[in-house]
Simulated scan of single mutants.
Amino acid sequence: MKLPVINLPPLLKNKYILSLVVFGVWVTFFDQNNLWDRAKLSSRINQLEKQKHHYEVEIEQNERKLSEIKESPESLEKFAREQYLMKKKNEDIFVVIEKED
Rank of each mutant, 00 (worst) to 15 (best):
M1R: 14
M1L: 14
M1G: 15
L3I: 03
L3T: 02
P4W: 00
V5Q: 00
P9E: 00
L11T: 06
L11D: 06
K13S: 09
K15E: 15
Y16K: 14
Y16L: 10
Y16R: 11
I17L: 03
I17Y: 04
L18P: 01
L20P: 01
L20R: 02
V21N: 04
V22Y: 02
F23N: 10
G24H: 11
V25T: 07
W26H: 11
T28Q: 12
F30H: 10
F30A: 13
D31K: 00
Q32L: 10
Q32E: 12
N34I: 05
W36Q: 13
W36T: 14
D37H: 15
D37M: 13
D37C: 09
A39S: 14
A39Q: 12
A39T: 12
K40D: 14
S42G: 15
S43R: 15
L48P: 07
E49V: 11
E49T: 12
K50W: 06
K50D: 10
K50R: 14
K52C: 03
H53Y: 15
H53T: 13
H54S: 11
E56S: 13
V57M: 13
E58S: 14
E60Y: 12
Q61L: 09
N62E: 09
N62D: 09
N62P: 04
N62L: 10
E63P: 09
R64A: 07
R64S: 08
K65L: 12
E68W: 04
K70F: 00
K70S: 03
K70Y: 00
K70I: 04
S72M: 10
S72G: 09
S72Q: 09
P73C: 04
S75E: 10
L76M: 09
L76Y: 06
K78T: 12
F79M: 02
A80E: 06
A80L: 04
R81T: 04
E82C: 03
Y84N: 01
M86N: 03
K88G: 05
K89L: 02
N90L: 11
N90M: 10
E91M: 00
E91I: 01
E91Q: 06
D92V: 01
I93Q: 04
I93N: 05
F94L: 10
F94K: 06
E98H: 01
E98Y: 00
K99I: 14
K99H: 08
D101A: 07
